[in-house]
């Protein structure tokens, strides 16, 4: 990567936080499913993924907290922002309507996440590179898990194919937002810290198409892609996720747990 001027600390912190917000919201959604899955094996596997993602979030937020100073901690970043300050993409806040939606949401994110980490492991920022190197093996497993399940559901029986296809139709419009860089992401990319996001679109679509072929599923035609999460303009689901996640910190401010 070619290095331009290093971004200021605030921009770097925003970049790290924005990247981890996707993991935070998805991990939060997966954590809620624990104990309610189709069987013990899927419960254990989805919990593993949730734990991996929370681990990545903690590394990122701890780093961001040192950049921000002023008493910031991983928990003030995770729990004490307003909704419009969370920069996750809209996909990860979409509801867990059934196991089909859970798997499609996971798969669409995992493929992007893995491509992103492949780039970030060479980030000019040592901490980001180290976090990416550690996370990439976990994320490769996530892709395998969600792709395998997508194939099982798509190429399973009539009901499962219909459900998987419905979930894909519903969620595919959310699978492009991450390629549109924000000002922060552009600055990070220019400095060799972040990834050139638009260049990930082609390998992303290729990987998705390959798995969908095996799953005998089809992308919906004429998709109007949704965006806004990275600007802090979320869907109606986000408020409820945060209300629940933040409830203790909001009810009992400033306490140690």
């Amino acid at each position: 990567m070619t290095a331009a001027a290093a971004p200021d600390t605030r921009t770097l912190a925003d970049f790290v936080i924005g990247m981890a917000d996707n993991d935070l919201i998805l991990a939060q959604q997966l954590g809620k499913l624990c104990g309610h899955g189709p069987n013990l094996e899927t419960d254990i596997a989805l919990t593993n993924i949730s734990l991996d993602l929370f681990g990545q979030v903690r590394s990122c937020f701890q780093y961001a907290a040192t950049l921000l100073g002023n008493g910031a901690t991983e928990d003030t970043i995770a729990f004490l922002r307003k909704e419009h300050e969370y920069r996750n993409v809209l996909l990860v806040e979409q509801p867990s309507l059934d196991f089909g939606h859970i798997i499609v949401r996971q798969f669409l994110y995992d493929v992007f996440h893995h491509l992103l980490l492949e780039r970030l492991q060479f980030s000019a920022d040592e901490t980001i590179a180290a976090i990416a190197r550690k996370s990439i093996k976990e994320t490769a497993y996530h892709v395998r898990f969600s792709a395998d399940w997508l194939v099982r559901l798509g190429d399973g029986n009539d009901e499962s194919r219909a459900r998987a296809q419905a979930a894909l139709d519903h969620l595919w419009p959310y699978a492009d937002e991450w390629f549109l860089p924000t000002a922060v992401e552009s600055a990070a990319a220019a400095a060799g810290i972040g990834a050139d996001l638009p260049s990930l679109r082609e390998p992303y679509q290729r990987k998705v198409a390959a798995v969908l072929r095996e799953a005998t599923l089809e992308l919906p035609a004429d998709t109007h892609f949704r965006k806004g999460g990275k600007q802090g303009i979320h869907t109606e689901h986000m408020g409820y996720i945060l209300a629940e996640m933040q409830s203790m910190q909001r009810t009992y401010p400033g306490m140690q747990w």
Binding site: C34, G35, D43, T47, G55, R58, A78, S247, M248
Partner: peptide
Amino acid sequence: ISRAPTLRRKVALLAKVQDEA
């Protein structure tokens, strides 16, 4: 799990419930 007060507590609780599974 969804309401644990800190990230550290949330991860520990999630891991515990997973152990029970």
